[in-house]
Design a protein around this nucleic acid. Sequence first.
DNA 1: CAACTTTCTCCACTCACAGGACAAAGGAGA
DNA 2: TCTCCTTTGTCCTGTGAGTGGAGAAAGTTG
Lengths: 396, 396
Amino acid sequence: MRRMTARPANAHQARLLKLLRDGGPNSRAQLGDQIDLSRSKLAVEVDRLLETGLVVADGLAASRGGRRSHNVRLNPGLRFLGVDIGATSVDVAVTNAELEILGHLNQPMDVREGPVAVFEQVLSMAAKLRVSGLAEGFDGAGIGVPGPVRFPEGVPVAPPIMPGWDGFPVREALSQELGCPVMVDNDVNLMAMGEQHAGVARSVGDFLCVKIGTGIGCGIVAGGDVHRGVTGSAGDIGHIQAVPDGRPCACGNRGCLEAHFSGAALARDAVEAAQQGLTVELASRLEANGTLTAVDVAAAAAAGDATALDLIREGGNRVGQVIAGLVSFFNPGLVVIGGGVTGLGHNLLAAIRTQVYRQSLPLATGNLPIVLGELGPTAGVIGAARLISDHLFSPA
Amino acid sequence: MRRMTARPANAHQARLLKLLRDGGPNSRAQLGDQIDLSRSKLAVEVDRLLETGLVVADGLAASRGGRRSHNVRLNPGLRFLGVDIGATSVDVAVTNAELEILGHLNQPMDVREGPVAVFEQVLSMAAKLRVSGLAEGFDGAGIGVPGPVRFPEGVPVAPPIMPGWDGFPVREALSQELGCPVMVDNDVNLMAMGEQHAGVARSVGDFLCVKIGTGIGCGIVAGGDVHRGVTGSAGDIGHIQAVPDGRPCACGNRGCLEAHFSGAALARDAVEAAQQGLTVELASRLEANGTLTAVDVAAAAAAGDATALDLIREGGNRVGQVIAGLVSFFNPGLVVIGGGVTGLGHNLLAAIRTQVYRQSLPLATGNLPIVLGELGPTAGVIGAARLISDHLFSPA
DNA sequence: CAACTTTCTCCACTCACAGGACAAAGGAGA
DNA sequence: TCTCCTTTGTCCTGTGAGTGGAGAAAGTTG
């Protein structure tokens, strides 16, 4: 199949494409109710979209008491690739133009191996999805990396946990390999966009999305748009001081949030506790696997292990304290907690909520839901697909 | 003089009005260079603006090598009122449509006396400016209050330091009294808008404006627009925890930033130090005036008093620590420090800078100026005038 | 005084868009 | 089955937005 190259010619067409993406197949009449255009003008624009091939006819809809309408929908052959590169694993998914996931792969990987090795793996995963019949090529790809990105160019800048990527032209390189347009963003921002598109943050204009994985980051959505900051490092809350004169952090300071709570810190603390003989539960798991992760801590807590519970609570308190400050500052309408450690579930959430509701002003917390993300590991790839579709569904 | 009631009829006219406001009198030709419109269309819109009276002819400009151009400018008779209500004083100013201050009054006042008493004072100050020949009436007014505001309605909500104002219809009441459109906002947001319009933040799209007066607040500008949060309480950083288990705060928590550093906290600490005999300088001032303010501390520090210097440094460290967190989170392109305590000047700034540059990530601080506000006490009233002019210079 | 520049106005043409008339297609009751 | 009503989609015309060029008006420079 030949790939689509067309782009919307004007703002109306862009609007229509996004309505069809977010609302599925629809008739001209119903589209007219959602857009400020006359029936005649709308028909013209729809016809033009049909000519480009971005949109196709989709049969007759059921009658609503009169003549049946001719539905249109986004070309069902369109394929987006969503890539979410984490610190220790990579997710690759294929979606259709409505951003529904058609296939999804996840593989462990070390981002420190550098862009060349990682891209090799990403491309082979993409190829696997392609030969499985889900796609014959891609119309666009979005990719998230665990560090700051100079957004317009799609280039990582000074990423602490992936030094080899500094300045690597991710967008350009991937675009050449895949032969389609590519957009690059921070993985946390993509998670926020994912939850905004299809998760708990639907229809919320101002929210924070805190991702607790190997590290900690925060996606900021203000007025419906992601706030990236002047150098693309906005949301980098892992190195906010959480404990005065606290633990030394890899960044050179002391007491950083990340040094006290994150997937990595939690695992380290769990091993320590097990070795000190504080917890049989964790000790036996340590003996069995040779190492511990957040998953072990979650399981131990679920089994009633007091030490594991304490670790989670203490961590939640730290994160909650920082989030409380951010809530006072930003006054969001929603806080989403996501990332690898969401397996810690309700215990973590409870600790965070306690801190935020206690420390922030009532006006800011009065009607502030603090919830777990809904999409889990798919948030990132959905956000990636959303990123590229937002780009392609805008006038050229 | 009859007041203007016209508003721009479309986005082009709005754009032109703002160009004339920010750039002063100008010719059609030069306006055409700054706006994406053909000469002919532009001429039509300018003519329509001339008809409304918002814009007037302003004679011939000097030749630029050819025919001399007919300048136009905003009607020089337009008058905006800018009101900045602080915790302990009120500023009222009159500006022209180009937001130049024509007259400015400042009076002490206690905001806790409630809206009725305060408005009486504001109106009498406005009347004083009016009879002095600066204005015969106002075309619009902007007003800042020291607390959260439900922006669309112009109503303060749950303001901690001015409980009597909760729910008072400031916008409606003042609009009735003055007989002109009124917009209401948080005083810190207006300070940010002031510095953005005419101060250090010109041409910066993302910045923070920290106002340290009786309390502490932070104006947030993202993508050129003020971020107010979902309940209008964004930027309320005075109650972020700065010291774990620190001093008790009026809000009920402990260790809030405001409890450790602000105009009020600094004065209290200075009195304490004087009474403990730690500083001759401050003690003699205390004896002379019966009380101490931030101004006394600044003077003592300037005179070389070590205790005063310590107070300033310690306070700057506290604020700096909080700002460091906000910088990591928001990644601004500029941080402006303003408010009553800017008299503390370079000592304060040095302490803040030290903390931010040490604690935030290099990528976020690499090219981040941290400077004092340029406009001093006029920032608020200029911001207020800017607020109402932005409103009136938008299509109705 | 001639040649060149810049500014401003006028006019013709194109395109975007609204809104109404009308045809096509269906439903529901008599 | 027929009639009336509803909904959908198309066609056509009128209006206003906007461009671009021609040319007049007003300067400067040599």
